[in-house]
Write a protein that binds this DNA or RNA. Structure first.
Lengths: 339, 339
DNA sequence: ATGAAAGCGCTAACAC
DNA sequence: GTGTTAGCGCTTTCAT
């Protein structure tokens, strides 16, 4: 079981390897007759081009690296799917790396991708401090940040309008008479967390109240954190009337805790969440959320990267694009205003 | 911004490129002093090895291809995470391909991975007919099938004991007095569907009943199918007392439909599911499921692949390993037996 | 312990 | 339209 190379194909049709190469890669100046013969021989011999050799020579791998924090999170899984579809269509492969929200792991993956000679990178940074590792690459290979952006404005970024999302959700809650709203946030270092807090605060400012400071809790992105925080909040003397979960994982933890405590939604307590995975609509009762525009984000990120790829080493100034999502009102919030 | 190569490092320390290569790759016969000098120079110059060139020469890419049908499905997402962790630990990268349950796409990815010279492949086949494409490769690069297995017994496979899972769930339902149980299955061509039907039938045979044939419905793997089928079933003159969802996506569709119809679980109707994503325990009420051992499966698949990798081209006979899951009884099934 | 030289499989100049 | 030649950046004999 020997590896078949261009050499073998060339020998088989009595042509030079360069002609074979041209015929196979669809070069213009090749006799149609010849091309057919070469193709037939290649198929017959079971020739499979070696992508490594090709890439080494032609200086492009047709491969994009994607670094995301967590693939179990429906948000990133959906993004990966969209990205893969969009890039594949242009003949690009995707190497997926899962950083687990660990900056070290993040940086290691970025480096590995560079060594792998990827043509471009889509990156969800683990911390807004920015990946020192990529800093240098950006002029070598294009990088676009997705969902979160790092400080310094060095990279193109496609993100959701998290401030706006949090604001709309907060307004909705306030309009229905809620005042004691507990904000259950993600890790502080991440740009989305900061933006969401800003939106939350802004909502309160609009009506002239300030959120009870103790009600803002920042932690991780896990459902465990959502669950733990919910249990804490329920023990408070003045229990919040509404819980604001800032990621789908956190929301899951909140719901689990509420289920454990036997509390009714929205009878006993109201719940809203940022991001709208499929189960939110299926829940009993359906959960009110701010749906993030993940398809659009993925698509746009892919297009942006492709554009940078096309315009080679042309200088550019990084743009950051904010896409708005959609407030999706369902049945998880009670009205506290007297009729 | 010029690419730094071994050549540059060599020039910088006045050594030959072969010595630099040896020093960097940790070859034994290199002077410690020299090694240090080389490493320092490499770091200083910002040298990054070209993985392509290395792989081309050394004939191994340290890369594993993973082909899965759907990453939005919590089951595969979890598998991918486990696999990535296990393989990374051994210095392997993962290229992720999403086949969308399309055999054509499946085959194309497999081919692409081969051209990419991956060292091994982990494959969730889209159809039990088996991927013709890989058939030939298997002697070239090791392939292990995950979750589903294809016919012909050509490949190593690590799968869940789906028959057993369906059997336990069916027994549980039967013991609680259910007789009209609707089985909402996935696509017929897939090995897991076949195994799950077998388990379902076996359960009924044990008690001497046969399932109402009309109650077995086979469709896709989407939540849309689960939802649609549920609506159909509810219109039946003799409505089933329990719904058996055979994947987490289907379960989601079932739950959404039930929520829309305003039916209470388990008061009006009982529900069980195969596979136990995080939201099942958080649901209100918590859903009874058969939890698939996905961590173990992923881990075992990785180990098996690594073992095949280690024993080079040694002949072997493919083994298929079945791992059992765990019946997880919660609160979504009503007892129909008179006290 | 180090160096010189030969490729891995392919594409891209450059000839003709 | 086709062949010849020269590498891409690296590892790896084979010398010394």
């Amino acid at each position: 079981l020997q590896k078949i190379t261009v050499r073998d194909v060339a020998d088989h049709v009595n042509l030079s390897i360069s002609t074979v190469s041209r015929a196979l890669t669809g070069h213009p100046h090749v006799d149609e007759q010849t091309r057919l013969r070469v193709r037939a021989a290649a198929r017959q011999l079971g020739y499979q081009p070696n992508a490594l050799a090709r890439a080494l020579r032609s200086n492009q791998t047709k491969t994009i690296g994607l670094v995301i924090p967590d693939i179990m999170n429906a948000f990133y899984a959906a993004s990966a799917t969209v990205l893969q579809a969009a890039l594949e269509q242009q003949g690009y492969r995707l190497i997926l790396c899962i950083s687990n929200n660990d900056p070290g792991s993040d940086a290691r993956y970025l480096t590995a991708l560079m060594e792998q000679q990827v043509d471009g990178i889509i990156h969800v940074p683990s911390t807004s401090a920015g990946a020192g590792a990529v800093r240098d690459f950006n002029r070598t290979v294009p990088v676009v940040e997705l969902a979160r952006h790092s400080q310094g404005g060095l990279f193109d970024a496609v993100i959701a309008d998290d401030r706006e999302g949090a604001l709309q959700l907060t307004r909705h809650l306030l309009e229905l008479g809620h005042r004691r709203i507990a904000f259950i946030g993600g890790p502080q270092e991440v740009s989305t967390t900061q933006d969401r807090i800003a939106g939350f605060r802004e909502g309160f400012q609009e009506v002239g109240f300030l959120p009870d400071h103790a009600a803002i809790g920042l932690g991780g992105y896990s459902s465990a954190w959502g669950s733990q925080r919910t249990h804490e909040l329920l023990k408070l003397p003045e229990r919040p009337t509404a819980l604001f979960a800032t990621s789908n994982q956190i929301l899951l933890g909140v719901l689990r805790a509420l289920s454990q405590e036997g509390l009714d939604i929205p009878g006993d307590i109201s719940v809203v969440g940022i991001d709208d995975p499929e189960w939110c609509a299926a829940w009993h009762p359906p959960i009110t959320t701010y749906a993030l525009p993940l398809s659009e984000m993925g698509l746009l990120a892919a297009q942006l990267l492709l554009a940078r790829l096309a315009s080679a080493g042309a200088p550019f100034s990084p743009t950051i694009t904010r896409l708005s999502g959609k407030l999706t009102i369902r049945e998880s919030v009670a009205s506290l205003v007297q009729a």
